[in-house]
Design a protein around this nucleic acid. Sequence first.
DNA 1: TATCCACAGGAAATCAGGGTGT
DNA 2: ACACCCTGATTTCCTGTGGATA
Length: 439
Amino acid sequence: MTNSNKDEDQSFNIDKFYKDYLKGPIIFKKREALEPSFIPNELPHRDYEIEKIAAITACALKGDVAPNLLCYGMTGTGKTATVRYISQKLAQHCKGNTPWWIYINCNVVSTPYRILAHIYNTINQKEKIPPTGLPKDIIFKKLLGLLDIRIKHSICFLVLDEIDILIEKKGGNEILYDLTRLNENLDYCRTSLIGISNKLKFIDYLDSRVTSSLGEEEPIVFHPYNANQLADILKQRAGIAFPEGIIEDGVIKLCAGLAAKEHGDARKALQLLRKAGEIAERRHNKSISESHVQRAQKDIDKDHVVEYILSMPLQSQLTITAIFLLRKYNKQHIITSGDIYDVHSELSNRIPGIKQLTKRRISDYINELALAGLISAITTSMGHYGRTKIINLDIDMSLVERVLNQIPKIKMANLLNIKPTLLQTDKVRLKNNVFKKLL
DNA sequence: TATCCACAGGAAATCAGGGTGT
DNA sequence: ACACCCTGATTTCCTGTGGATA
C-alpha cells in the first residue's frame, strides 16, 4: 500500500500471498453485480418511477421530443439506475432511429465549457474539443452543427446527473438555459433534458427561465427504500454476484438494516455486502457471516475518512493538521477559527513553496471540513470577546495521525511533532479560561 | 444602552496555469 | 509572438452579528 508500514511488513512475501490467494475459496461469481454502475434486468420497488419516466419518454419511440424532466431523491434511491434502465429498454423497442443518451455527471464535468465539450466529444470521437482554450459560444455553435449532422432526425437525451452541483456554481443557470433552448437552434435533431438531483430544494436556486422549461412535467420523486425493500435488492444482486450457499442467514438482513438507517441508501447496502465478501475472501473463509458485515461497516467509515483526507488539497490537509496539533498539545484548549489560522500560518511557513493564506480562506476550509463530517464547527458568540467558531475534531486522533503521516510533505517537515508557538503563549491560556467560564 | 470584539461569510476582483487560433 | 479564452484558488473589500462589558 504505502511505504509507511515498511517496518511491520518486512517479512511480506508477495509470491506466497498470491499463491495462497488463489488457493482460497471462491467467494465471488460476478463481483460487478454489486457495483453502483451495474444495471440489473429488473429494478425492484421502482415500478412507479419506471412507469412514469417510461410514459414521458415513450414518444421518442415515434421520433418525437420528450418533455424535459427532473428526478429527485437522496443518494442510493436508484435515480441514475432507473434512467439508465429506461434508456436500455427504450433502445430495445426502437425501430430504426435509436435515441442517443449522453450522461453528464455534473460533479465531474462541472463547468459550462466542459459540459458543452463533453457532449461534443461523446458524439464525435474523432475530432475532440480541447479541455480549455476556446470561447464558449464557438463551442456552442460547433455543437449545434454536430447535432444536426451526426444525430440528424433522432432524439438526443441529455442526462445531467447531480444537477444541483451545477446550479451552485456561477454560470450554472446560463448553461442550463442554453441547453433548454438547444431545440430552437437546431434544424433536424431534437434534444431532451433529464435532470437528476439529490437535493429537493435546488429548484429554488433555478433561474425562472429554466424552471419553466425544466419543470414542464411534474418532477419524479424517488423515495428512500425501507429495510425490506433493500433486502429484496440485495437478494437479487447477491444471486448474481455469489455462488449459492455462500451467504449465511441474517447477512442480507443486517446489511439492509444498516443501510436503512442511513436514509435507505441502496448503494451503501451493496457496498456493505461487497466489502463483507472481500473480507471473507481475504480471510479464506468459505462463507460470508454477520461478523464480516460488521467489520465491513467499520472499514467503510474509516476508508471514507482516509480517502477523503488524502484527496484533499495540501492547504486543506494543513488546516486539519493545525486542528490536530491544537488538540494533541492541549487537550483542554478550546479551538477557535483564529487559533487554526495562527497555527496554519506557522505550518505553511515550514513547507517550501506553500503560501500563507488569509483568514477568509481558512474560514472556507473549516467549513468544508465540517461539511465532510471530519470536524464540527459551531458559531458561538463570546460577547465582548467576539464571535467565532468553536471547533471539535470528530474523528479518532490516532486515525488522523496515521493518515497525515502518509502525506509526504507533512511527514518530511515533521509537522506532527511541532508544538504550536501559540500554545506556548499566555494569551491563549487567558482566553481559554474566559471562554470556559462563558460556555 | 451603546460599544466593541473577532470573527462570519457574500461578492467581485485578481492571479496563475492550462489552452486556443492567427 | 500575441491577444484572448476558461478554470480554480485565493485575495480584497465589505457588511453583518450576538452578547458581555463599561
